[in-house]
Design a protein around this nucleic acid. Structure first.
Lengths: 336, 336
DNA sequence: TTGAAAGCGATACCAA
DNA sequence: TTGGTATCGCTTTCAA
């Protein structure tokens, strides 16, 4: 690979001069600019970003830590970060981490080795303490989908509890009286919070879900199908079903219709997340929008802001997001 | 950030020794290993990957160039590359490029600046010549979804033409006689090839598609809906519909059922790509599997192989992939 | 406006 | 087994 020295030698100038034209330095004659530019083109010269980072002590990367890219939810997260990266002329560095404390730590460390100074981290397993220490070590680290009091301004998260409440309010407003829920025993507590919020709002309205009408499953299409079969097997009837996420909700609809129930006329089904799938299902899924892409963009911007010399006072900007009800076709007024 | 010098000073050894324990060097006493390791831990030392890359002249990154991460197809591609990266202890560097020659070139250049030595590139707009030159400059560059004769062993691609033929054979085998097609006028020629393959196979069977029964649309759900409406508006009947991709196919099914046609009993619908969506649709979509994830993994492995000192003789390994028919529920025997 | 030289954080060769 | 030191490619004073 040709280096700055090659360019300098062939152009008959010092490396300092080449460096100056490379960085649009302030004091360079037009003559050198042209001469050097021409040689750079001739030699097909590409500056070495690693060397630059080394000497300038600043990175032009933007890191993101997620479990994987195959889950559209995390792909959206990464997409949000990527958009900010492009806009800020940074390169996206991606580190994957299974949901385990060790791999999450490893993934973050890989970014630190690269001296990545801004990173959006999705960590469910590292302890609050570990994360706080990391946040101290890496000024541009921002957590997404997690809330830790001590570093609250650096957490961008969704209020799942409130999401559950919004779901309940929607179904109550549609005059539903008997409710069921398909939830998930995931390694994270999002499902729990959603269910809690849902139940608490029902209770405020003087009703509740019968114990038999709460089932759990894997957070997938099949998981939703199986859980719904169990629900049906209980023999109890219900007119509104709140499901942990969209994939499960689509599975639920599938099982309900296979068993002769029409959605939404017989049973309303409400999902959560508003992933791409929800627009493709028939009937189109009513759900709660999880604005993960915007949240990821906000997180990335906060990270960049944090390492800038003159941090704006962003303390007034809320990092808590409330899911938004998206009414499509799978929920409707209860006429029974 | 603490550096190797800090560690050396505090441990009372030379930087050379620290470097040795860092790299499990061959000649280090147990004593120094322990001493240095302890200090590294104490100081929370993380080696600087940029400095390492600079002196060793080798990268530990794996690059990928795609249009975006929001399209599940490209997310799968990136996911495949990411898996290889993790397995080979490399970090994923992602560069996005809109489908235009300039942005594609920019994206690749960003990777070169980082001295990324292996990259999987999805380029539809750069000229063959430009790509060949890049391939010469970057020995570990591999193209995906593109075939260029001159660098054939470094192209991993899908035979779209054959895909169209397979589609036709499937529908013919189901005794269909009247065909329609929803295609796309995309900036790339995949749709064209699929349609060509489809038609050529029909012709071999002594039949064809009437001109009125080929419609084009955006490669999206809505695009599929609209194109199918136009098809229906023609007034001509058909029992089998071949659609450019799964998103459009799901749109097509939606429109067909809205117009009183049952899928597959009245009309069989066949998609292409086998994205996640196809398993979530009702009826579940029959489609052609585009093994993009495996292809991406193969591409990444080829890239790594290319820069290894002792390249295996892989010339016998085919980089051409044939889509595989996935029979689900949207196609069935034609009983009329 | 230009160039010489120090230094960023590591590795690796050569001596000791 | 260790340490000294040149070096990677670049930026950034400091003089000229």
């Amino acid at each position: 690979m040709t280096t700055i020295k090659d360019v300098a030698r062939i152009a008959g100038v010092s490396v300092a001069s080449v460096s100056r034209v490379l960085n649009n330095g302030p004091k360079v004659s037009k003559a050198t600019i042209e001469k050097v530019s021409r040689v750079m083109k001739e030699l097909n010269y590409t500056p070495n970003a690693n060397a630059r980072a080394l000497v300038t002590q600043k990175s032009t990367t933007l890191g993101v830590v997620i479990p994987n890219l195959i889950d559209p939810f995390f792909a959206s997260l990464a997409h949000g970060v990527e958009q900010v990266a492009r806009q800020k002329n940074r390169q996206l560095l991606l580190s994957t981490a299974m949901v385990s404390a060790e791999t999450e730590m490893q993934a973050i460390n890989l970014l630190i080795e690269r001296r990545c100074d801004v990173m959006v981290v999705h960590s469910k397993k590292l302890s609050d303490q570990a994360l706080i220490e990391l946040a101290n070590k890496v000024p541009g680290l921002v957590l997404i989908d997690r809330y830790i009091e001590a570093i609250a301004p650096r957490c961008v998260w969704l209020d799942n509890l409130e999401g559950g409440k919004i779901a309940a309010r929607h179904l109550l407003a549609l005059a539903h009286k008997s409710f069921a829920c398909v939830s998930s025993k995931h390694q994270i507590d999002d499902p729990l919070l959603r269910l809690q919020g849902f139940q608490s709002e029902l209770q405020s309205a003087g009703t509740n879900i019968e114990d038999d009408l709460i089932e759990y499953g894997e957070p997938t299409l099949q998981g939703g199908e199986i859980a719904t079969q169990k629900l049906l097997a209980s023999g109890k009837s219900f007119s509104a079903l709140f499901v942990y996420n969209d994939a499960m909700a689509i599975g639920a609809i599938s099982t309900l219709e296979d068993n002769g129930f029409k959605v939404p006329s017989d049973i309303s089904v409400l999902g959560f997340d508003d992933v791409l799938l929800s627009r493709y299902s028939r009937p189109k899924l009513s759900t709660l929008n999880y604005p993960i892409e915007q949240m990821a963009m906000q997180a990335a911007n906060i990270g960049i802001e944090l390492i800038s010399k003159q941090p704006m006072n962003n303390s007034d900007i809320s990092c808590k997001h409330i899911p938004r009800l998206v009414k499509r076709e799978s929920t409707s007024f209860n006429v029974n």
